[in-house]
Amino acid sequence: MTPIAQRPPLLTMSHIEKTFSGDVVALKDMNLTVNEGDFLSLLGPSGCGKSTVLRLISDLMHPTRGKINWVGGQGSDDLGVVFQEPTLMPWATVAQNVFLPFRLKGVSYASVRDDIFEALKLVGLENFQAAYPRELSGGMKMRVSIARAMVTKPRLILMDEPFAALDEITRFKLNNDLLELKAAIDCTVIFVTHSVFESVFLSDRIVVMAARPGRVIHELEVDTPYPRHEDFRTSAEYAAHTRAASEALGEAIGVAA
């Protein structure tokens, strides 16, 4: 893995400000450079603008001030998104759901059949192609959602608290799998969470945000090399990183109050 300082930048946000109607300042003077290969967690209390950052990057919303710049321009296949809910189409099978990004680009199913199979295999659901979402458990639905986000092999995947609604055992399992997936498809991830433990286990960069107005107050590096396994959760290193992240988050909450 390339050290963070040597990674080429993928996307820069400079002096971003977002003000909603009614003068609610969601983000103020937000600066962030996302590098190629980062697993970057946005950690912060609710209302700190974490999700707003994702909406700005995915172009669902435009900044009031400031600029978001994709280094080398943004291609149409560059982005994959996973929401807090699995957000599957209930009327479509698992394979058709994963096919969606291709379908909307006008690509035929036959030409991407293998890609869909590969993506489903990576999340361990290659035997569920013909199943409907209602036949799957919450964790399996989320896996389909992840397969859909990465099937086009995007450069950047945005994840907005994807595991928040799952039980802890399922969440741990998906954490492990997500790290393997990221290594397998070699992409960049921005992961929004309010869990210190999740952010430390998954990411190599943790950006801590404070609320009112939303802004970055700390940035931490988790230098434990990948692959990280379940035993990382009980290591002294992990404990030290979670303490540092907890303190930063505590400061974020203190600042906000």
Binding site: S58, D59, L60, S76, L79, V81, F83, E85, T87, M89, L100, P101, L104, K105
Partner: peptide, 14 residues
């Protein structure tokens, strides 16, 4: 339609 799906369709340029 589900709002997140609406967003997803927008992101994929539907």
């Amino acid at each position: 339609a589900d709002h997140n799906l609406e967003d997803l369709f927008t992101i994929y340029g539907a």
